[in-house]
Write a protein that binds this DNA or RNA. Sequence first.
DNA 1: ATCCAAATGGCGGGATCTCCCCATTTTTGA
DNA 2: TCAAAAATGGGGAGATCCCGCCATTTGGAT
Lengths: 184, 184
Amino acid sequence: MLKMIVPDMVILDISMPGLRGIEAAREINALYPDIHVLILSMHKSKEFLSMALAAGAKGYLLKEDSGDELLQAIDQIRKGQTYLSRKLINEFPSAIISICRGNYKTDSDPLTPRERQVLQLIVEGNADRQISEQLYISVRTAHRHHANIRSKLSLRHTADLVRYAIAQGYITSHPYAAIPIRYG
Amino acid sequence: MLKMIVPDMVILDISMPGLRGIEAAREINALYPDIHVLILSMHKSKEFLSMALAAGAKGYLLKEDSGDELLQAIDQIRKGQTYLSRKLINEFPSAIISICRGNYKTDSDPLTPRERQVLQLIVEGNADRQISEQLYISVRTAHRHHANIRSKLSLRHTADLVRYAIAQGYITSHPYAAIPIRYG
DNA sequence: ATCCAAATGGCGGGATCTCCCCATTTTTGA
DNA sequence: TCAAAAATGGGGAGATCCCGCCATTTGGAT
């Protein structure tokens, strides 16, 4: 993957949805602990930041950040420090503080229990309306959870959600309901 | 499943999407060949009919058919004959003829090659627009294929399609694309 | 030759999703 | 106790989906 050259620093250009970029960072960190990993991400979320740092990243910048900030980040990381996107710091100050205290999530599951529940229903083929009826919440709230799930995972399509859920082991059984049988 | 009683006839009330009802018919036919299986189905499609007969069903009625026709079907099946929904016969005469000649599909995959291709793209997370661009067809045609797939499988939601595709082994690998890695 | 399935493309309307914005209440954790 | 997170609910705009209906072209099978 890294061929013959062992660089001092790797810039992970995460332009894809899902958690593959995080996994890549984790792998690099495990195989080459001396390599500094700087993540240049499209994901403007504290969940991704948290997971990235948990995976051993030394820096986290957004795609939309300036080239100047990139140079500054590279410089600072080479000195052995950690650099985070200023925009992200301004956006989620409390989460950053929490992370700085070492409280980043080590698990790769950024969803809340309720969101996992909604995801389960989505994957089972329920529309938002049906989800709202089953959970006794408004369609709005079902939409909200749905949107938050998509946002946190950066997965735009339902199909992606289903594949993600299956890969993560959310789906336990019953691909279809049982067939009622009557005697004639 | 059938408990202690072994009935002469089983009416399979297929009100669920997917191919579970067909599988149930196949099981019953394999375990109790003497039991006549009459399928009372919501699926007004020749694909389901074909698969039902291939699975050993002796009759195929639609939910929308009248009670009179149900009685007639039961009577005819008890005499050892096969009964098919009149509506279905009128709807797909040529397919019925083909089936009567023994040409029903033994496989459980009613999709055409093109439809399988489209399904593959759907479950990979592509919207119809993107599918049309990849296959060099109009969005309309992509819609058409998509609709035909849903119709044939009686699966309304994308999530169901994804689960079906995974269960059928359509999905081989690459849940997500590879991450581009650059050297800094 | 003729029928038919498969693939192509279209129209219209209503439902649904997607993505922004916003708020309040409850629960949890430090 | 106090701040943050989680869960709840809403508006609106635009894209997309879903489901009927329709037609044409092509190629394969009888």
